[in-house]
Amino acid sequence: MGGLDLSFFDLEMLRKFVLQGFFFSVQLTVVATLGGIVLGTVLALMRLSGRVWLMVPAQVYVNGMRSIPLVMVILWFFLLIPFLIGRSIGAEISAVITFVAFEAAYFSEIMRAGIQSIPRGQVMAGQAMGMTYAQNMRLIILPQAFRNMLPVLLTQTIILFQDTSLVYAIGAYDLLKGFVTAGKIYGRPEEAYLLAAGVYFVICWALSTLVRQLQARIAIVR
């Protein structure tokens, strides 16, 4: 066991091994956040619809997803796809679909809380102006709910970014895999993991700081 040797950590190593993985991790985070919010909002509206045939499926889906470890969902989906459609779609695309589906369950709970945080009077005011349910949601309720929940949504996105490292289970090439690969090639696996942790920390810490600052800025004055 020699001392730590970080000398292999340079621009060339980053460019050769890490950059591609970094881009995939960011891509996965962005797509899963946007897709998760859209699908999650639909699930939240289903759960709040008051109609059993919409509420029950949404509830089963959300509670089901939230009760299974993400890494298992990632694995299952990756292994099941070839059975279902007869061919593999690749680890990366499989990961994207899994993350959107999984994160939707969490985002739906955030959006549900956001929608419920809007005073009933606002719903009534929209209705009283003659808006349909869809107009009221789109123009009055969701914009306010979204703004109220933005800090929580972004915090969930930071967690999501950390969770993207779980795609190691299906061998997708993400940020962590980039470091691990470099570690193997340079024969410095321990240092590579340490550096990976450092990079995750810096990114997530910077983002949380950003969220805190944003929080103070966007609060709606009532």
Binding site: P119, G121, Q122, M124, A125, G126, Q127, A128, M129, G130, M131, T132, L139, I140, P143, Q144, R147, I220, V221, R222
Partner: peptide, 29 residues
């Protein structure tokens, strides 16, 4: 919705839309 668009209502707690400007509140519906 059609009926309500012809009946004006004023609430105890105003219920202006806080994320919209005064002008947008007046023009949206």
């Amino acid at each position: 919705p059609k009926l309500r668009s012809r009946v004006g209502m004023v609430f105890q707690h105003f219920e202006l839309f806080p994320h919209l400007s005064v002008t947008e509140n007046l023009t949206l519906a």
